[in-house]
Every structure is written in C-alpha cells, then in structure tokens.
Write a protein that binds this DNA or RNA. Structure first.
Lengths: 353, 353
DNA sequence: CTGTGCTTTGAGAGCGCTCTCACGAATTGT
DNA sequence: ACAATTCGTGAGAGCGCTCTCAAAGCACAG
C-alpha cells in the first residue's frame, strides 16, 4: 500500500525492451511491428508474444522523427466554433473524412481556427504535426493557405477562391449542374417567369450556382433578368426576395441558392400573400435540415457532403502515397490523382416545387 | 519555370541550421527558442534574427521525443459523430477548453470515439501523442478509461460512472441540486402532478438529475411515479414523453433532463393538444441554444458548460504542471489540485414554466 | 569443394531536439 | 591578492524509432 499522493506512472515499454524479451534485435521487432513479410514465422511469433506480454505500443514521436512522417492529417476550418458546430454541413464532412481515415491508419486533427490568431494554427501545422491538410469553408481573405501549400500537400473542400491557383487539388460539388437541375424543375413545372436569389457573389459556390441558373433559363428561352443577390443568410435571402417581388411581381418560380436563404424567402412570400407552390414554386440548395424547418418543406438540390469529406480524405491520402513512391523515378509518370473531383447533385422533391 | 509535375518541398530548417547562421551552438538556440533568461542579449538578438530569416519552426516530434512531453491534450468523446455535432453542449465545452488552452501553448486533439473500435483511440493515446486526456460524456460501459488512467493524467467532465474511483479528477455541475431547483419551480407554480423524462440511466448526469427531481417531489409530498427514461436525444425525449402522457394523462408539470429532449417533449405535448405552460409546465436542463429553438422558449436549469470546459482544461493543466515540478521533492506537499470541482446551476425563467 | 545468388537477421547511423555537465569568464568575498 | 561562486556557453549523450548496409545462412550449380 502506497501512501504517496502522486504515484509515478510506469514507463512505456520500448522496442528495445521487446527485442530483449523476444531475444532478437531491435530491427527485427520493428519489421514485425510494421508488418514486413521477410521475417521467419517463429520469430514473428516470438515477437508478437513479447509485444503482447509487455503491452507494447510504438512511440509516435520517435517513429515520426525517424520516418519523417506522422500518419496524421489536419482538417482546417477557418470558422468560429459556434458556426462550426451549428452547421450540419461540417458534421457531415467530418463524418466522411473519418470514414475514409478509418480504413487507413491515419488520424485526424481538427483545427477550428476561428478568432484565434491563425499563426498559431500555421505554426502547429508547420511543426510537422501532420503530413497533409484538408481545408474547408475557406474564405477569400484566408491567405495563410498559400504558405501552407509550400509546406505540405493540401486538399480543398470547395473550389478555392483564387482562380489563378490551377495547381490546387480540390473536391467540389457541381454547383452549376445542381443549380441547372433545380431551375429545370421549375421550368418542367410550367413556370415561365423564374427568378433567383443568389449566394455571395464573392464565393465560388455563389457564382457557380448563378451560372447554372442562367444556363437553364437560356436553354428554355426564358428571360434572365429576375436576379437578386443574397449572402447565404436568412436575412439576406429575405431582403433579396423582397426586392425581387417588387421588381418582378409576376414571378411564378424562384430558385434560391441555399436552403437557409430559402426559409427567408418563404417567409417573405407568405408575408406577401403568395402561396407556395401555388403562386410561386420554390427550389432551394443544400438539402440541409433548414430545408424542412420552414413553413413549407423545400424542394432542394441535395449535395453529398459526407461523400465530399470522404473524397477529400481520399485524394489527400492518394497524394501522400504517390509522394512516398516517387523517391527515385521522378520522370514524367502519369498523373494518377486528379486535381479536381466534382461530385454530383440530385434533386430532392418536397412540397415547395 | 519548372515543368516537373511534382515539386519537392524544401526541407524544414533545423535547430542546427539556425545555430550555424547565428554562429552559436545548438544548445544556445534551444535556450533562446524556449525562452530561457540565462542568455546574453546580443546572442538572443542574433538567434532571433536567424530564426526569422530561416523561418524556423521547431519540430514537434523531435522535441517531444527528447523532452518526453507533447504539449498536447486529447478530448475524448465516446459518442458518435452525429450526436457530438448535434448537441450544443459539446460545442460549449470545446469552446471553454480551447479558451483555456489558448492561454497556454498546449493544443487540443479531438477524439470522437464513436463506433470506431475504441482500441484505435486507446492506441493513439497510448502512443504518446498527448500528455493528458479530458473525457466527457462517459458511459458506464466505457472501460477503456481505466486503462487510460494508468497511462496519463485524466480529467472527467461529469462525475465518472464507476463510483469506486475516488482518485479520479473531475469537473461536474451539481446535477442533483439543479434538478431539484428546476422541479421546485414546478412545485412553486402550484403543479401537483409532476413527471420527468430522465437522461440516460448509464450516465451519472442522468442519474443525478433524477435524484434531484425525486428529492424535490418528496419534499413537497408529491407522488414520484411519473418517471420515463430518455437518452438525451430529441427522439428519445419525444418517445419518453409519449409514454408518460399515455401512462399519466393528468400530468400538469414536466421536468425534462435536457433541453434537447425538451424540444422533443414540447412537440409531443403540442401534438397531444396540451398547451405549454397552460396545461403542462415544462422545465428543461442545460440552457443550451435548443432551449429557445422549440415552439415555446424553455424555462431551464442553466449549467455553465463553457465554464466546465475551461475548468476541465485548467485542472488538467495544473496536474501536468504539478507532475513536472515533483521531480525531486516528493514529500507530502499539500494537494494543490482538487479532485472534484463542482459548478453551480441556476434557473433561467422563460415561457414554458 | 568453391562460387553465385538469394533471404533472413543484426549492427549502427541518424532523425531534430532537450538537457546534463563541464569549462572558461566574470563577479564576489576575504 | 587568490579562492569561491555565479553565469553564459558549448560539447555530447541520449529520447525511441527507421532504414541502410553488411554479415550470416542457405540453396543450388559447376
């Protein structure tokens, strides 16, 4: 019985100790632990027994120092904590990433880089804590990204804002096709006076969705003047809808670039005495929980957030694997990992259109 | 202009390189980088210049190997991803932890240990990735905790399930007192047929809140049979409320062990045509954003989730600091870090009761 | 019996850092 | 004045692991 207040924790077993117990060399234990095939079966057995007996777990720091890799990835989210936790989109993406990572032995480090001075995040990443980074919800102002890219492989979720960056790897949803799809639904419904509330004009997702909307209308030979800009918030969506209704009181179809804005639009429509989908059919985008929270369940363009997360992790892992192979033969071998991965969208029919 | 497909990343500068540029020894650079005061001012300047010139960032793995500590903590959440992201409680706790950590130079590793074989998580922790662990939402079945505690300092958020563990450090809210407070509100309102939807029976928070509820009812001389078990989810709360209504259609007061379940209860109550607080007064627990999201703003027992996170990190950091000091003088110095930290609750009056 | 080629194993050199120790210089006491 | 102490600095030994390289073992051909 120890009366000492603070019991010293037993030191973790080391490779050396395992080697001694198994009666082999350190190198051999390392081979067994790392699953090398070129080791005699009875030696494998002896080592395995020793490992279990000592309850040995390799030390990450040592391994990482020697092998110059960490088996860890970072997910960087330049967003504040509240926003991050509040948005189901992030939950889905993280879920997808971990699903992919569970198949490997990489681990994930979540970096919600909110208010905190981003230099701290950058420092963390640069100190060799991870082999690569995943970046989502990246805003135009986030310049630390450029520096990060010189340090390690990076994969974006969503097309990066600076268009000049053709070297960037990213996974995105086909926003234009999705918007086209959603708009086409309105056309198919026989609507002929169709407007849109766009997303932020300075974000790729906002721009691309407008592009898709215009494409669908032009194809149908419908005038494309009923466009009002929103900003991906409920309030912004409501205001844009109000302006639209004033300018084009006769609209009978409305494509809103996000479900969140869609709920704002729904409120304004009802406030103006328009029935949905009777007077005005409405299509949203995202298929977020917000879609079903409003007065009328929104028909919406669904994007595969979970799959996006999975794909992001997959692309990064493949880049990492490629880098590892290309030790000697660095000639023009065929590019195996695509720079851009575009995910499909699909229409989810509910009541609003 | 390089046509090579894959540009090799420049190697990170090392201490050695900085030493050479500054014209001093490796040891001295280390001293400057780690802020030792016992270095001549002009040497500090020379080193600082060299560090900036080379854009040097210390390598974590090497530092951690040599110093035998990582400057990182883990937050272990034995819960699935959906649950974790869905509950604002976790967001608040994480926020509190990071607020404390921002004052130190520790970093946080989030381990949402859901479905994933917990051995992977345990392995990760045991491979020396972190100096200590924070555990929240810990269920009775989670036995890996015992093993973890032999490896590193652990601090719990919420009283740990196994009561025999008197050595455990934890931060908890006074759940029983809070539940008592909330239930008393219903009594004060003149309600005489009061029921409850409990939390998970395998979690101390669930148990303690039930205890407080029962205590308040017994004190008021009210029967304590209207108890239904929930599981801290919206669906579970709704189901429990439905059962309760069926069994005791005459209840006029309801204490729900979490706001999330409270919103579920509110829905069911409305669906059964009961007005709140008219027919049934409802009191929740947590004071989470969910409290104001339902049809009726919930009167609720507020617990300082963010403060709890802060306190947890604080306790762990202090334990770590203590361990570091106790190299030589290990005599019976007074216990500076308390094993248990109990935070107060308070009642927040809104419309539901 | 020697030579060739293959496979299995061990020895040992780092990976980038911290930390102890020793040494010379500067400071103080007597 | 010289011994004693302090202070700033560098040398060097690891931390626990990986990985290259060479040695040892073995098979088979000549």
């Amino acid at each position: 019985m120890t009366t000492s207040v603070r019991q010293t924790r037993p030191p973790q077993p080391t490779l050396e100790m395992v080697a001694e117990v198994a009666g082999v060399s350190r190198a051999t234990v390392s081979r067994v632990v790392n699953g090398s095939t070129r080791v005699g079966p009875e030696i494998v057995a002896a080592v395995t027994t020793a490992v279990e007996e000592l309850n040995y777990v390799p030390n990450r720091a040592a391994r990482s120092l020697a092998s110059r890799q960490t088996q860890a990835l970072a997910l960087v989210v330049p967003e504040d904590m509240t926003r991050f936790f509040g948005d189901p989109y992030f939950a889905a993406v993280v879920q997808g990433i971990t699903r992919r990572l569970d198949q490997s032995d990489f681990t994930l480090n979540l970096l919600v880089a909110s208010s905190d001075p981003q230099h701290k995040t950058l420092r963390y990443l640069r100190s060799g804590n991870v082999d690569g980074a995943l970046i989502i919800s990246h805003h135009t102002g986030d310049d630390f990204v450029a520096e990060l890219e010189t340090t390690m492989p990076v994969v974006f979720g969503g097309r990066p804002a600076n268009a000049d960056n053709l070297e960037a790897y990213f996974v995105d949803v086909d926003n234009a096709a999705g918007a086209d799809l959603g708009t086409q639904r309105l056309v198919d419904l026989g609507r002929r006076r169709i407007g849109t509330v766009t997303g932020s004009a300075d974000m790729p997702a906002g721009i691309d969705r407008l592009t898709g909307f215009l494409r669908a209308l032009e194809r149908a030979g419908i005038p494309t003047d009923a466009v009002e800009h929103g900003d991906f918030t409920v309030q912004g969506g409501a205001a844009a809808t109000r302006r639209l209704l004033e300018r084009c009181p006769d609209i009978d179809g409305l494509f809103v670039a996000s479900d969140l804005m869609g709920t704002g639009a729904l409120d304004v429509l009802r406030e103006h005495g328009r029935s949905v989908p009777g007077d005005v059919a409405v299509v949203g985008f995202d298929d977020s929980p917000a879609a079903t929270r409003g007065s009328v369940p929104l028909t919406t363009v669904s994007q595969p957030s979970e799959e996006m997360g999975f794909a992001m992790a997959d692309v990064l892992l493949r880049r990492l694997a490629d880098d590892a192979d290309d030790d000697d033969d660095d000639d023009d071998d065929d590019e195996s990992v695509p720079h851009r991965t575009i995910m499909p969208t699909r229409l989810v029919l509910r009541e609003s259109a």
